[in-house]
Each structure stands twice: as structure tokens, then as C-alpha cells.
Design a protein around this nucleic acid. Structure first.
Lengths: 402, 402
DNA sequence: CTGATTTAATTTGATTTTCAAATTAAAACT
DNA sequence: AGTTTTAATTTGAAAATCAAATTAAATCAG
């Protein structure tokens, strides 16, 4: 960047060090195209600022010549928290600047939907509970990333609407920042999973990829040119409301033919409910149990149950194929927390995608399944916070020198 | 950019001058964030190099103070050609560095599919025919943009496959460059329409938009962050082969349910052919005439014809809505050359899109129809060439100073 | 017509960023 | 102990940029 003589080089080098973790200066120079002289100067500055540290020449068998000195991000430089606001709980992780997980925590919420103040209060409580066993406090944090379902304006930190918030058009970022005194970074949860994949997961090597998540709905995060693409209205990629059938099944959103209306839990249960053998197909008191039962029946070969589940899989494949036909990404990550999405992650589904995309000489994009624990979201939120903190740290370099 | 001390500022300023055509230095400084001092220095260099020129203070009523001096791109600096390789003809335009069209030309090809050498020969011939009336020759050109249907690897200038070429995996760029002695820029034709919209059309103000073109197939060009997004396999956005129906109508590509299989000419004729009143619905000897007849019938209220045409429109709307749900662009441009796409550009279709996208507080993206002449493609090719020539010109600045 | 005022552009004198080439450092070979 | 090899640093200069001061070109006020 230009204007105010901003330190583009520092940014680039710090990012390169992060991505290639233990890396010698000469390789940095090679990778970034920045001269060795500059690399020396800039890394010295980063080390002086405590963001980077040298590590003993990572033990490749002793070569000739002066041994290279590897550089890595200095974990102790900063501390960030990642928080996912889920249906009726908060899940949190604590990470150092290098991305090492130092703690995790789960906090049960009293209600699904809370007012802003109440939510922020619970958040502060949960953070405290995670930090106190380590002898830390919220003031030790350099940033907090928050993932929330709904429609989020990232620029402003505004939550236009969320199932977790009873208020509308809340500036959650400033609410948290004033309450906790810590820089906050708020984003839609689907974007944060993409962020997690990019930083810690399967997207580390890729520059253009897509992450699809299945929870109660179907979410999607898009990474283009190493950055989250958020669309122009900030309402994000609504893969779940992609239409897969003209005048098709009715969706929760009120429209017809949405992918979600074919693959979501409620869609499967709806189908199961109309067959005469309803009890047999989806027995259980909770919806989760019913789904479980339905999937088990399908697995056991029940023709009607199979029929229901199979179509969901085929619709899902069709939706994904459309993404490939439009985007042509390097990689599609199906990130899932629950085993219940097994039917959508089946071999046949993935094969179905490959049969529905335009054939060219080159191989089709990889489709991989990534099962995370339930901390996936929180880790993504932490990754987002790390990005923000890194940015601020570089910006502060110049200023803090005087 | 960094490395070899590349002149990022020059690039930014030249681009800003191009986009805001007659613009005073002080506004340039404002817009780009570059200091006024630097703007003076850099623009002086651009003027010295002949890329930019001053124009008389464009006549706003005389304000107080020293009058601003506007800057603009100097058209005479360079000459580029844009060439579209169409089904059985070449269409060409000649543009100056400012983007003014100086000439156009149409060249009929002997065959639809040619060998590389033959095609390049025809190309040279056509260029010569366009240039000679102006007393120019090919050597006066600084670059030539070439648009060709098919699968193109832009980085390499490779055409993997094209309906216009009998050879496969041809490096068309180097073939043209060696034959003509002019830098060549080859791209897929759908991308070039996007480029044309971005430079000369409705996409001038937008940074993220999508251009859909209808010719014999359905094409799409994507602009993200002011740049053409080409996907990772270079096979481009295959909007036409987006699936809109599970196990749907058979497409030319061999798969089922492709959008093209519902909205392309052959799809409409296929439908018309199975009704008992075939002759009446789609009379004519050529396919074009038949389509014309079918559309006329639909317009006149024939129920079967209407039924056919209406569904095509609704499918088209559904495909476009999916794009919006995934991409959330500022703008969708439906760029068409022929009036025959009228039924797809109807009010109802555009209304259909709006009813199938996720509703948020913000207004939906604009959908606009842009009817160009048949030079649309060639102009896009010229725009692409201009981009390349501009790049080269800036890079040459430093080098040529010694 | 003259000087005050206003706004745009340029000059001046740094500061920052970067680099190529020369030098130094730290190791393994011989 | 000296040679070779490779990594990192230093040195001296060039390039890019900026803030502040200055100059330029106009209008306005009397």
C-alpha cells in the first residue's frame, strides 16, 4: 500500500513467516522476492518488537556453510480468544500469537436468544472462567474473535440480525469492546470456519477454496485470493438457499426449491412424516433422535428411508457441482462437526459432484471432508482475531518506535 | 508491489487517471491517498513519457484561486487492436490508448474451424485490411487482444480447446506474436465481455459484478475486486452448465439438467419439435428462423409456445438467483448482442430473480440489460490489450530512462 | 489598477524503504 | 591451518514518498 508510507514489506514478511513457520531468512527472501538485505533489516525490527523469534537451526543434517537460522512467530507476543456463539452455549478457545491452543471452555447459555447486554455479560463471564485458571484476565488479551450466526456487517461490526440476539442492528463489536476493553472482531460463523481452514486446516496450501458447513442449515465460506470473499451486501454466501428445483419443496425461508429444503434435518423429517410408516421411520422424541433413527433405517436398507436420504445426497451433490461450475476452486472442504451429516459426505455424493461438473483436461477440484471437533468455530474466531491483532501489531511498529 | 523497487505509485496513478478521465492533480491525490507532492512528481514523469497529457481546465464556471489543470490519458501514446474470433468471421476494432475507437472491420472466414497457421494468417489479413485505409501497419500496434471461445489458459496464452481451432493445446499467443511481431493477449470470450463492461460499459462504477452473455450458449464473466476472476483451472465460469434440475433435460455436454439445456436455442426447438403442432410452432428453414417463429408465436399468445418460452425464462431466473445467492455481486449485467434473447431479458425474468434470492435489509443487486452491437466482443478484446499495454508501459518507464 | 484572498501546483529538504555489492560469520571439508 | 561453502549482515546509494514552505494563477474588493 501507499499513502502515509505504510510498511507493506513488514506485513508481507510477517505473513510469510507465519505461513512457513520455521523459515530461514534466505528462504524468506526467495519466497517473497524481497532482497536479503531488506529481509535482514525488517526481520530485525520484527524481532526487536517481539513479534518474531529465532529458533535453533531446525535439524536438517548439518550442511556445509554457515547454518541458517530459522524464524518463527513468537507465541508469547499476544494472546487472543475465539468465541463461537452457538445455539444455547458459547464455546471458547484461547490461543497465543503463534496459533497454539492454550485453553478451551464451554459455557451454557440460559436461553437461546438473549438481549445484547445479557449476551455480552455471559461472554465476559465465560471468558473469565476460561482465563482465571491460567492466572490471566481479560486485560491480557490483545483481541477477541466472535462468530455468530446471522447477517453481519464485518466492516462496521454490526449484527443486522441473528438467531442468538433478540435485538436487531446491534453494533456487537463496539458493545463488546466497551464492555471488555479488548479489540473485537465479529463475523458470520460460516466465514470463520473458512478462516479456520485457511489458517489451521486443509486450506493452508490453497489460495482459492470453498468451505461448506452443515449444522442446522447449510453454510458456505469463500476464500478467493487468500481472502474471505464476503459479497457486496455482506450477507454472505447463501449456499443453503441456492435453488435446486423450480417450484420445489418449501423452505424455512419461505421460498421454494432451496437446497436446504432438501438436505436439512427438517426436510428429511418432513419427508419421513408423510409416509404411512411414520413411527417406524423416524422414531424418537427429539428431532435429533428422529433423524438418527431415519438414517439408521436407511443404512439398514429400508427402501423408503433410503429413498429419502439418497435424494438429499443427490441434491447436495448438485448444489456443490454448481459451485464448482461457477467458481472452479482448487478445493472444496466439507467441514462438519456432527456425524449426522454422514449421508451427505458419502462417496456417492462426491462421485455425483464429479459427474455434474464441466469436463476439461485438468483434474476436477479436490473435495475433502474435514471433521473437526466442536471447537472448529471457536478456532476460526480465534484465527480471525489473530489476523486483526497481527494487522494492528504491524501498524503499531512505526508509531511505537519514537 | 515490492521487489526490484517496482513503481506501484505510477501504476495506481495511471489507473486513477484512466478511470476518472479528466481529473486534476489535487483530486488524484485525494482519491488515491498519495500526497500532492508525489502526484506532481509522478504525473510529470507520466507526461514526459507521453502516456498522459494536460487538458485545458475543463470548464466549470471560473472558481477562485489557481485553476486546476486536468489530466487525461494521451490517446496517441499507443494503438491496440481487439479481435473476436467468432463462428465464421473475425470482428475487429482499433483503439487508441485512451480507448477511443478509431476503426472497425469484419472479416469473413472460409471455414468455421481452422488450423492454427491458417487462423493466424486470416488474422493478419484482417488486421491489415483494417489498418491500411488509415495508413497504418501492424507494426504500429502496441498490442492485440484476442477473444476466442473455448478453454484458455491466460497465463500461458494457451488454447486448450476451441470450436474455432482444429488443433488442440496451441499456444495461440506465441503463434500470433511471432507471426505479427506484436504483443498478444488471449482470453476466453466471456471474460472479455466482462472486461468490456468494466472498461466501457456498465461495470465502470462497480468492483464486484457478473456479466452473463447469451450467444449460442450461455457464458459468464466474473469481476471480483476489480479483476477478472478466472477460477483455478482456467476453464472459467460455466454458468451454462450449472444444474437447474436433478436428472433434467439432456444437454449438449452429455450431462442432464444444465441450464443451457433449458434456455439455449436447441433446447427450445427440441421442445417445440415434440408438440403435435410442430410446423406451426417453429416454422423456418434455418434454426434462427425457427426460433424467431417460436418466439413470435409465444408473443402472440399461443399457449404451447408460451409455455415453452416461459419455462426457459423461469429457469434462467433461477440460475441467476443462484449466482446472487452465492456471490452477492453489486450488479449483474445481461449483455446481449441479439434481440433473440428478449424472452430471457423480460421483466418477469428479472422479477423472478428477485423473488428467489435471500431477503435481507439491503436492496437486491441491480440486474441490468446491456445491448451492445456485435462489436462487444472485439471491444472487450481491445480493453484486455489496453490493460496489458498499460502494464508494459509503466514497467518500461524506469528502464527507458537511462 | 493594486493588493488581499483563495486555491492548485510545485519545490525543498527530509525520511523511509529498498537494493546490489561487498563483507563478515559460521560451519564443514582437506 | 587453510579452503570452501553458504547465510547473514553491513555499507553506500538509489528510489519513493511525504510534510511544510513556496510559488503560480486566478478572483475579489476597493
Amino acid at each position: 500500500m501507499i499513502g502515509q508510507q505504510r510498511s507493506y514489506g513488514r506485513r508481507v514478511l510477517l505473513a510469510a513467516i507465519r505461513q512457513n513457520s520455521p523459515i530461514a531468512r534466505i528462504d524468506l527472501s526467495q519466497q517473497t522476492g524481497i532482497s536479503r538485505a531488506t529481509v535482514t533489516t525488517v526481520t530485525a525490527e520484527l524481532i526487536r518488537a517481539g513479534l518474531v523469534e529465532e529458533v535453533a537451526a531446525q535439524g536438517t543434517e548439518m550442511a556445509r556453510g554457515r547454518p541458517r537460522v530459522d524464524l518463527k512467530i513468537r507465541g508469547a507476543a499476544h494472546l487472543v480468544a475465539g468465541i463461537k456463539i452457538a445455539n444455547s452455549s458459547l464455546s471458547l478457545v484461547l490461543m497465543d500469537f503463534e496459533g497454539n491452543q492454550l485453553a478451551e471452555h464451554n459455557h451454557v447459555l440460559s436461553k437461546t436468544t438473549l438481549g445484547t447486554d445479557a449476551l455480552v455479560g455471559e461472554l465476559a463471564k465465560a471468558l473469565g472462567d476460561m482465563l482465571s485458571p491460567l492466572g490471566k484476565t481479560v486485560s491480557d488479551l490483545s483481541g477477541a474473535g466472535i462468530g455468530i450466526a446471522g447477517i453481519v456487517d464485518v466492516q462496521q461490526g454490526l449484527v443486522h440480525w441473528s438467531p442468538s440476539l433478540s435485538d436487531r442492528n446491534i453494533n456487537l463489536r463496539s458493545a463488546i469492546e466497551t464492555a471488555l476493553g479488548v479489540p473485537a472482531f465479529v463475523d458470520n460463523d460460516a466465514n470463520l470456519v473458512a478462516m479456520a481452514e485457511k489458517r489451521f486446516g486443509l486450506g493452508r496450501e490453497a489460495t482459492d477454496f470453498i468451505v461448506v458447513t452443515i449444522e442446522s442449515g447449510v453454510g458456505m465460506g469463500i476464500v478467493i485470493n487468500n481472502e474471505i470473499y464476503r459479497g457486496t451486501r455482506g450477507c454472505g454466501a447463501e449456499f443453503g438457499h441456492t435453488k435446486v428445483h423450480l417450484d420445489g419443496a418449501l423452505c424455512r425461508c419461505g421460498q421454494r426449491g432451496c437446497l436446504e429444503a432438501y438436505v436439512a434435518d427438517y426436510a428429511l423429517l418432513r419427508e419421513a412424516s408423510v409416509t404411512s410408516s411414520r413411527e417406524a421411520l423416524a422414531q424418537g422424541t427429539t428431532d435429533e433422535q428422529k433423524i438418527e433413527a431415519l438414517l439408521q433405517r436407511a443404512h439398514d436398507g429400508d427402501p423408503v428411508a433410503s429413498n429419502i436420504v439418497l435424494r438429499a445426497g443427490r441434491m447436495f451433490a448438485m448444489g456443490l457441482a454448481n459451485i464448482v461450475n461457477i467458481f472452479d476452486p482448487q478445493l472444496i472442504v466439507l467441514a462438519g462437526e456432527r456425524m449426522q451429516s454422514n449421508h451427505l459426505y458419502a462417496e456417492e455424493v462426491i462421485a455425483g459432484i464429479k459427474n455434474s461438473i464441466v469436463q476439461v483436461d485438468q483434474p476436477p477440484p479436490e473435495v475433502v471432508i474435514h471433521r473437526w471437533g466442536d471447537l472448529m468455530w471457536a478456532k476460526g474466531a480465534a484465527a480471525y482475531a489473530l489476523e486483526g491483532v497481527e494487522e494492528a501489531a504491524v501498524a503499531a511498529l512505526r508509531a511505537g518506535e519514537a
